[in-house]
Design a protein around this nucleic acid. Structure first.
Length: 429
RNA sequence: GGGGAGAUACCAGAGCGGUCAAAUGGGGCAGACUGUAAAUCUGUUGGCGAAGCCUUCGGAGGUUCGAAUCCUUCUCUCCCCA
């Protein structure tokens, strides 16, 4: 399989340095993608880089995942209007470990194959590199003029914001460039990939390799993932979509993908799944024949939920979705046994309420606002009830209702729905 | 250092003595339509309530029957000249 061709039809190439394709056609290549360990889990935004590595490996090349322990301490000024807070080493180490475990799900790190993936951490080679040595060995070879010409730097110097950037941030590209040089020297790594915002940083690396080693190295970037409606990709009302099931439950994860728009689904299925070109084209044409079946969204959600979590997590998510969004009625809700009910609502926000209060009835507004904080004020709850946006156990609420033990499912739970997609499980105890 | 402009709800931005809980647009949320899509349309967007009341227009004082609106002062932002 030709890696470049593969990425090309998937719409994953934004910029590519001339010669890259030839390099990969002639030999088993080695490439890396950098990941900043800013949290103890990857989120789906990181998945793009991971998928690039995955395809790379599938095409018979050797992928390196670089965890940016050192660069993470500095903070990349690219696309950032303000300097980032520095992270301390202990937190970074912890984050690196967690990320490493997540990457195992995507890349083969363990086989004996020549193209098994490796994980490296730039902290390992940067931590003992003294400032003096660094500026002498590396800084010597790159001019300030070159560094200042980068967009990320220019924007911060001349931009309307005009905040300037610290020396630390300015140095970032040099540190990242050195990573590339180091991997070139020690692992024969000739290609760095990343998001389109990384182009400038990557080319500093290829430049260093040219000047210091007289070697040739390549760059490949992938377009920024966008949403058709202009919103940021990978965000929900509750923030990032994480791979860590503790942060984003498999159900929420599944729902995120299921909810993508038609336009985006076509794009995403190419980027985030491993379906072949024929399979994807087949799915797209079937989808356009019967769009209401949402085949693309379902395939996308299924594939990712299984790969990131597991088959059984996927099944539970589907089951939960069917109960929540399907023909589910109060009757089906009532018929669920406690175990099923809890597994369906795994990952749905819960709140506690005391059973004794319920025994003496609570006005619904008080129940929704004061007791459970599902709404931040009674007025808001009242308004939404008036709009018909509040459902108790799948039945429309009115603002005179009294909530009592009669509403309890399995003698313990009340299902509150705020709008079509937001569920809350109130637990009496 | 000199001169000028400004600070209004999530954001942008009207209001410039009472009719202002504050126009309008965007965003958010909800409803209808659909396919848990997009587009569109409608409603809603300070708090507590039945009316009504309470707290908001950078901070602190003051004038007035009455202030987002006038005065004083403080803080911060922007622009122009040196």
């Amino acid at each position: 399989m030709n890696f470049i061709e593969e990425l090309r039809w998937r719409g994953m190439i934004h910029d590519i340095m001339p010669g890259t394709e030839e390099y990969l056609l002639n030999e088993m290549g080695t490439a890396y993608v950098g990941i900043d360990p800013t949290a103890d889990s990857l989120h789906i935004g990181h998945l793009v880089g991971v998928m690039m590595l995955k395809h790379f490996q599938r095409c018979g090349h050797k992928p390196l995942a670089l965890v940016g322990g050192a660069t993470g301490m500095i903070g990349d000024p690219s696309g950032r209007s303000q300097e980032r807070n520095l992270m301390d080493e202990k937190v970074l180490r912890h984050n690196q470990e967690c990320i490493k475990n997540q990457l195992r799900k995507f890349l083969d790190f363990d086989s004996d194959s020549p193209y098994k993936a490796e994980m490296v951490n730039n902290y390992d080679w940067m931590k003992d590199y003294t400032f003096l040595n660094f500026i002498r060995d590396i800084g010597k070879h790159i001019t300030i003029n070159y560094m200042m010409a980068k967009d990320s730097v220019k924007k911060r110097i001349e931009g309307e914001v005009g905040l300037g950037l610290s020396f630390t941030e300015f140095t970032y590209q040099l540190v990242q460039g050195y990573d590339f040089l180091y991997l070139y020297q020690t692992k024969n790594c000739c290609l760095q990939m990343g998001g389109s915002d990384q182009w400038g940083n990557i080319t500093t690396g290829t430049e260093l390799i040219r000047r210091i080693e007289g070697g040739e190295a390549f760059a490949l970037t992938c377009p920024l993932i966008t949403k058709a409606d202009g919103g940021k990709f990978g965000k929900t009302e509750s923030g990032n979509v994480w791979l860590d099931p503790e942060k984003t439950s498999p159900y929420q994860f599944y729902q995120f993908w299921l909810n993508t728009s038609d336009v985006d689904a076509e794009k995403y299925i190419k980027i985030f799944t491993l379906f072949s070109r024929d399979e994807v084209e087949e799915m797209i044409s079937r989808h356009s024949e019967a769009p209401h079946l949402r085949l693309l969204q379902k395939e996308l959600a299924r594939d990712l939920t299984i790969r990131v979590h597991s088959e059984s997590d996927f099944n539970l998510a589907v089951e939960a979705s069917e109960i929540l969004f399907g023909k589910g009625t109060t009757e089906t809700l009532k018929s669920l046994d406690e175990k099923t009910l809890l597994s369906v609502f795994e990952g749905v926000p819960t709140c506690q309420i005391s059973l004794s209060e319920l025994e003496s009835e609570i006005p619904i507004l008080e129940f929704l606002a004061d007791k459970t904080n599902i709404f931040s004020s009674r007025g808001e709850a009242r308004r939404m009830i008036k709009d018909g946006g509040v459902l108790i156990n799948k039945e429309k609420a009115n603002d005179q209702m009294m909530i009592n033990t009669g509403y309890l499912l399995n003698k313990r739970y009340v299902l509150v729905q705020k709008g079509k997609k937001n569920y809350f499980l109130v637990i009496a105890g």
